Amino acid sequence: MLPITKRKKRLICAGVLAAAVVGLAAGLDSRLTVPHYRLESEKLSGSVRVALITDLHCCNYGPGQRDLLDAVAAEAPDLVLLGGDIVDDDPSLPVEDAYTVVRALAEQYPTYYVTGNHEFWSGRVEKIRENMADCGAVVLAGNWEDVALNGQKLRICGVDDPAVGAAAWTEQLAEVGAAADGSRFTILVTHRPERVEEYIRYGFDLTVAGHAHGGQWRVPGLINGLLAPNQGLFPKYAGGRYDLGKQVMVVSRGLARESTRIPRLFNRPELVVLDLTSGEDG
């Protein structure tokens, strides 16, 4: 075997360093991504497109929040669901960035909101709910609303974050669970994915959640998430689609960027798009 010269060693080291820099840059990529999920149901005769937004945490998406708002507009949803932690509890973060998004969305689409834990931690949850309603969003907290979109009948149910209190949260879930009576396609909007065993006791066709931030660090193809609140290491419900018998849960990896103490790694923030369909439209 020929000896490795100093020049070759330097070239090898430079190559390894360059690869590491490129890999780190890819891992820290915080550009918005838009995953799509398709769900078929015999309760539908046509299609409805839903945009799911969670865990914005007052983060900045360009002047006037146009990066996020333009991404939503490009998907042309029929309905927008806000799955909690749109507002953060850190008073140093610009709360108007959150309300700018909600106001603009509610002007264009039916928009539904539930609280997250950070909104409770802020100590201003009642004011936040009031502000969301003033922006045009429908605030769901143990209640539901029936909507008709593209000739399809949907029931949108929502519960507060469990920070509302154990008894109140259980009561809210039971209230909306009773509304999942099979008469129409029913969606549960909630912040916490880890409570899935409680959700599947009821007849929701689709549950949407956030909170896990995608497990913060990922290794695509190997580790879906490293650490998530209330799930710990290697969370089962870090982000993505989970088929639960006749029910489906979709967990968004959320939109938090500069608000997180630890940067996201191979875990780009996301706007989730769900196409609900009869399955007969191709």
Rank of each mutant, 00 (worst) to 15 (best):
A25Q: 11
G27I: 01
L28W: 04
D29G: 02
R31Y: 00
R31M: 02
L32M: 00
L32V: 12
T33I: 12
T33W: 03
T33F: 01
V34Y: 10
P35H: 12
H36S: 08
H36W: 07
H36E: 12
Y37L: 00
Y37C: 00
R38P: 00
R38C: 02
L39P: 05
L39M: 08
L39H: 08
S41V: 06
S41H: 01
S41T: 04
S41P: 13
E42C: 00
E42D: 15
E42H: 13
K43A: 14
K43W: 09
K43T: 06
K43C: 03
K43E: 11
L44G: 09
S45Q: 12
S45N: 14
S45K: 14
G46C: 04
G46R: 12
S47T: 14
S47V: 12
V48H: 13
V48I: 00
R49N: 08
R49E: 10
V50F: 11
A51S: 07
A51I: 05
A51R: 13
A51K: 06
L52N: 10
I53A: 08
I53C: 11
I53S: 02
T54L: 03
T54G: 02
D55S: 07
L56R: 00
L56Y: 05
H57G: 05
H57R: 01
H57L: 06
H57E: 07
C59R: 03
C59F: 00
C59G: 01
C59N: 15
Y61N: 00
G62P: 01
G64Y: 05
Q65G: 09
Q65K: 04
Q65D: 08
Q65V: 07
R66I: 10
R66E: 15
R66Y: 10
R66M: 07
